[in-house]
């Protein structure tokens, strides 16, 4: 009894050195809303108009790359992924996922690069390069409207847990966790922005602040920088794990890429 009391004292006494926030807030499935619903009507209209939405430049580029044989006659992506053999049309809605061969969690960007290395004998594309963004955008747009749904069983479980940890971890000079803005304060105004629930279903997306198209990891880097935390590397295992946690958290929302954001 006494021991338990003292232990509690120790824990609360140390709680000023916060690692995680005390109470893990959640968003109920009835409240689940895409970032789209928090946008200004003009921004929504831009996303909805396939001719005006700048993201389609990357979709078109990706489509061409997908169907084209690379320089030295290696097979095109489309030669393996015809509609009936290995369909990729809805695949983007189910990433990140475990790569059977390595047992590691991969997001869509890494899956594209693995296919290049394994089946096309090509070097991986650089993160945030127009080619990788294009291929990712093309595949994501094929899954538009498909509900996000990912597997977190088996080997995926430890990544999901790591992603969840990061989401609730206080960090940076401002010592904030993702959950404090996106679970506790969605709908509130942070200067000119309305804080959304922080879902990844619109990515890769065109962001006006970037004046270009970018990946979900770029968005995560911006949120980390915003709280003055050192952002992690593009494609890092931790951001990929966060991506899995976000996808599970967003399960049921429709895929929207190419999204348009402020």
């Amino acid at each position: 009894m006494r021991r338990a009391y003292l232990l509690a004292l120790i824990l609360t006494g140390c709680s000023e050195n916060h690692e995680r926030i005390a109470e893990q807030s959640q968003i109920s499935s009835a409240d689940l809303r895409s970032g789209y619903e928090f946008l200004q009507p003009e921004t929504q209209a831009l996303q909805d108009d396939a001719f005006a939405n700048p993201g389609y430049l990357w979709v078109d580029k990706g489509k061409a790359l997908f169907n084209q044989s690379p320089e030295h006659g290696e097979p095109a992506c489309s030669s393996c992924h015809s509609d009936d053999s290995r369909p990729v049309s809805k695949a983007a809605a189910h990433y990140p996922a475990i790569d059977e061969q390595s047992g590691k969690l991969v997001n869509l960007e890494s899956r594209i690069n693995l296919c290049r290395e394994r089946y096309q004998g090509l070097a991986p594309l650089e993160y945030e390069s127009d080619d990788l963004l294009g291929l990712t955008a093309y595949l994501s747009h094929l899954a538009q409207g498909e509900p996000v749904s990912v597997t977190i069983d088996g080997q995926a479980r430890k990544y999901y847990d790591a992603g969840e940890d990061y989401f609730f971890l206080r960090k940076g000079q401002f010592n904030l966790a993702c959950s404090q803005c996106h679970n506790e304060h969605w709908g509130d105004k942070l200067r000119g922005d309305t804080i959304s629930q922080g879902h990844g279903n619109a990515f890769p997306a065109y962001r006006m602040e970037w004046q270009t198209f970018g990946s979900l990891h770029r968005r995560l880097r911006d949120c980390d920088s915003g709280i003055r935390a050192e952002p992690l590397e593009y494609g890092s295992e931790t951001y990929t794990a966060v991506e899995l946690y976000l996808a599970k958290r967003a399960e049921g929302l429709a895929m929207e890429s190419p999204g348009v954001r402020r």
Partner: peptide, 10 residues
């Protein structure tokens, strides 16, 4: 003090 992952700039 007691902060983590603070951007090197800060």
């Amino acid at each position: 003090g007691g902060l983590r992952q603070v951007d090197h700039e800060y």
